[in-house]
Design a protein around this nucleic acid. Structure first.
Lengths: 130, 130
DNA sequence: CTGGATGCAAATGTTTTGCAGCATG
DNA sequence: CATGCTGCAAAACATTTGCATCCAG
């Protein structure tokens, strides 16, 4: 190994202490910069990809098509606010699904899931004309 | 209204008779061409968007970030094969989730969902070294 | 030295928009 | 003729890659 990478650990640190629950690449990049960690966008991209590969991060696809990254930790699912784009973690929803039955009926071998339900968060409900 | 649009109805027809369950924009475009329906990609895009707006079509986000379109019809969810990119419809999974309880605990107003579970389809399981 | 890490620029792939032209009601 | 559909081209966007360079082991 040559030239040990500073970026991946910095990303993990940032996320562990972070205010956010999930980050876009853009946000990871910005937060690194805010911590004076020099990192080109490509490097951030590659670091995040690697971390996802190592299962230290999880990539979450929003219904909008945009992706977010979060610490792996305990598996959970998400609610996505169509108003403000917030992503709120909720306990794993697949626990309530009978995956075994699904595998039976479809022949699929389930490997993963990433359930994102669409809704309007409390704040946006308030601001909406009621 | 001027110049009634041929494209949206052609898309609906194509999907009603189609072999496929869900289409990428690219595929819609190709299938239109195969039926000798002249349509620029932009026009296909706009037509599909309109149909989604009118709730005649549904847009499904795959875990890969790619989008697919399908006829609205009865709501259902999907299994996505990570091997061959197939999208298999399954009965609505959210039926098994206690959405009311979720709304209670999170304050969200749930508006929609689009559950895509990741797995390996029967065919790909076969072809995999076992 | 060497191999991985990095920055920069540019390719990619897809979705989206501006605009001028055109065909119908 | 006005309206909104259409094609074409190009913008916008986010993601991804090529390549030359750099550096700690």
């Amino acid at each position: 190994m040559a030239r040990p990478s500073l970026i991946p650990p910095a990303i993990l640190a940032l996320m562990r202490e972070g205010q956010r629950h999930a980050w876009t690449l853009e946000q990871v990049s910005a937060d690194l910069a805010a911590r004076a960690v020099q990192a080109n966008f490509s490097s951030v991209f590659r670091a995040v990809e690697r971390l996802v590969g190592e299962r230290q991060l999880r990539k979450v696809q929003l219904p909008t098509g945009a992706a977010r990254y979060e610490l792996s930790g305990a598996h959970h699912d998400h609610l996505h606010c169509s108003g403000c784009d917030a992503l709120t973690p909720v306990p794993c929803l697949a626990a309530n699904l009978d995956l075994a039955a699904l595998e039976q009926s479809t022949g699929y071998a389930m490997t993963d899931h990433d359930i994102v339900l669409e809704g309007v968060c409390p704040r946006c409900r308030q601001h909406a004309v009621s």
